[in-house]
Design a protein around this nucleic acid. Structure first.
Length: 137
DNA sequence: GCCAACGTTGGC
DNA sequence: GCCAACGTTGGC
């Protein structure tokens, strides 16, 4: 199983909205970046992902799971863009902030720090375990 | 709201 | 195929 991180502006699509969708999940559409798309194409059903609030919050607020493989993005006719669906799994008992991540040497290599603008990113097993621990899981 | 970083576009 | 211009993202 692989680990990922999805970024969303809470104004556009928040963790609460994601949770409201329940197990049905929701299409992670609107991605118009090749790197992010390529990562989504690599995802498998059951892969876990952090749900990060950008712009407002700046913290990892929950854990989601990939529940549909990469398919054409329904919000565009442009066939270049694919996306997966994700569903909320659980809240982070204690949200892990960007500030904390930046202050943690073991997490200095995270894409969140290194490639700030990438909206879908891979997370290593080590990073996953540590962030979960910091979040109280 | 500003602005730096960075990805994409398009003219040559 | 290069690179300048432009648009977008996202932290501050």
């Amino acid at each position: 199983m692989a680990y990922w991180l999805f970024k969303s502006e809470p104004n556009a699509w928040s963790w609460d909205q994601q949770k409201a969708k329940g197990d049905a999940g929701e299409e992670w559409d609107g991605i118009r970046n090749y790197q992010a798309r390529n990562f989504m194409r690599q995802m498998a059903i059951g892969d876990r992902a952090f749900f990060y609030h950008s712009n407002k919050g700046l913290e990892i607020v929950g854990i989601a799971e990939v529940c549909a493989l990469s398919h054409p993005d329904s919000t565009t006719d442009d066939e270049r863009w694919d996306c997966v669906n994700i569903k909320a799994v659980k809240d982070m008992p204690v949200p892990v902030t960007l500030k904390q991540i930046k202050a943690t040497p073991e997490l200095a290599e995270m894409s969140l720090v290194k490639s700030m603008r990438l909206s879908v990113q891979p997370v290593t097993a080590q990073e996953w375990a540590l962030v979960c621990k910091m979040g109280g899981l």
